[in-house]
Amino acid sequence: MTAPITLSVRNLSRRYGKRDIVKNVSLELKRGEVLGLLGHNGAGKSTTLQMLTGVLTPHSGEIDICGFNLLRQPDLAKACIGYLPETPPLYREMRVDDFLVFAAKLHRVAKNSLHNALAEAKQSCGLQDNGNKIIGTLSKGYQQRVGIAQAIIHQPSVIILDEPTVGLDPAQIRDIRALIRKLGDSQSVILSTHRLSEVENICDRVEIMQKGHLIYGDSSAKMQVYGHQPGFVVTLLTPPPLNELNDIIGVEHVEPLSETRFRVMHTADMNTGAVLLALAAERGWQPQQLTPIKGTIEDVYNRITENEPA
């Protein structure tokens, strides 16, 4: 059974003056999916996210969230969204608890479940000990956590995070990524970022945006092999002659890297690695290690954005 679609966007467009900021963007998001929206600065990521949350009205296009149309039934649709804008919307003079309760009330959390919702959101974001602190006195990382807590306190089906890890230290980034990954298991998450490692680590799917268009969309695993001929590096402690490796079905090219290491390139549709390992076991080549070759996501990203005519 496929997971239900929580967010569906069709032909979304937005102009500023005569300039198209976002043009004909269509997206779909399933429950339990983390979608990364990648792009250069000014590619239209934030504008797209703002339209998805109802902060900006699109010039054309349809947005359905959990089956409710955002323009025709805004209250029902927006109740299903949690949104963390680029700058966390925090009232600096408020205490963390008061602010989160306010955010929960805004999103129509029932009075008798407020307490649980607050405790849960704080737990998820590691804010248990900060409930009484004034937001303005917290460090940037903790403010970001409060921003995320604010976005998830009403347990929305769709969570929209605009550059959630900007300005955090590595440990905080790791925590927040783990949190996003966890949220992504039960809810749908869209996050925008220009940090490619983020996509590699937490996103199931990637959409690349350039000049207001979506120019590439696929699973993040597939994106990493984009434009690469499939291949692997294999270490065989007692290697056979080179031509024996060349004869394995699907192999296109073998290049010895050292006495025992070989780079093997093969055709895309064959599972050559498995064939080689089976043969190795049979003929006693003593295989030790097999590492698939994949491009760094930076390479891939550059290749995709450069290929696209500007």
């Binding site: 902060v55 649709a77 804008p85 604010q150």
Partner: peptide, 12 residues
């Protein structure tokens, strides 16, 4: 302070 987004994105 860009907190208006919180109110605009809320179901109100």
């Amino acid at each position: 302070n860009q907190t208006l987004a919180l109110l605009l994105a809320a179901p109100i």
